[in-house]
């Protein structure tokens, strides 16, 4: 329990693989619009839980499902090189279809909660979660997506097959993408490729680029850029306030 918030670990029914997820909601009956928070390769760790709570403080029910449930239930690590290698190992075992199924299960779970507005969801994701957020944007329930430094959108999809970028036409809601110009994992030509495809598909998008590296919003990483993070966070608030909205007296 965090002041003004209700937080808990929950188990989401999902066939043979129930999902662990961290749920944070504003105190009160709601119903609140809901947002999925998608983890980096480091799992639903303290940073992701903190982001989830920050989202809840803005008036949304926020749910961070574990994306590595099949290979590493309860996975959460820090930011050392060994942690990164371990996280990437689990990331490499994910598959787009399974991830989309898990995310739909998470959305269906949110629909059952009395404090949640049962339609019109938002998604935000970071790093690997930024890539998965791009996938999630293709789900009919999702109307607003914030994708932070999602690597590989233009070059691969989890589990193999055509790059995630080829699914752009299926994005029906609004998507805002955030990249660092000095991100070694996402060269500018890939960002340009993504933008070209978003334009070609007439997607409702905005692309924000900052002079920063990978992970600029994560205060646990060396690449953290407080000023950039504050600006991007402001943009995210605009996205969700203007697309999902929160009633307030």
């Amino acid at each position: 329990m965090t002041t003004g918030l209700e937080t808990s670990w929950v188990t989401i029914p999902n066939g043979e693989v129930p999902l662990n997820a961290y749920l944070a909601s504003p105190a009160g009956r709601g119903p609140f619009p809901a947002i999925l928070v998608l983890q980096e390769v480091f799992g639903v760790n303290a940073h992701i839980r903190d982001v989830t709570e920050q989202v809840a403080r803005l008036g949304y029910a926020a749910l961070a499902p574990s994306l590595f449930q099949r290979t590493a239930p309860g996975f959460e690590v820090g930011y050392s090189d060994a942690d990164l290698a371990l996280g990437r190992h689990h990331k490499d075992q994910t598959q787009a279809a399974q991830l989309l199924g898990d995310l739909q299960a998470a959305l269906d779970y949110l629909k059952t909660l009395p404090q949640v507005r049962p339609a019109g969801f938002g998604v935000m994701g970071f790093c690997f979660g930024g890539h998965v957020a791009y996938l999630a944007a293709t789900l009919p329930d999702v109307i607003a997506t914030a994708s932070f430094y999602g690597a590989g959108i233009a070059t691969f999809t989890p589990g193999g097959g055509s790059p995630t970028l080829t699914r752009t036409a299926a994005i029906h809601g609004r998507i805002w993408l955030f990249f660092g110009t000095q991100d070694p994992l996402i060269p500018p030509e890939q960002v340009a490729q993504i933008e070209a495809e978003l334009q070609r598909c007439q997607t409702d998008y905005r692309l924000f680029t900052y002079e920063a590296g990978h992970g600029f919003l994560c205060d646990q990483r060396h690449s953290y850029r407080p000023a950039v993070a504050a600006e991007a966070w402001q943009a995210v608030q605009h996205l969700f306030q203007g697309t999902l909205g929160v009633a307030a007296v």
Partner: peptide, 8 residues
């Protein structure tokens, strides 16, 4: 209707 949610 103060604070009411009339989304969509």
């Amino acid at each position: 209707l103060r604070g009411a949610d009339l989304f969509k």
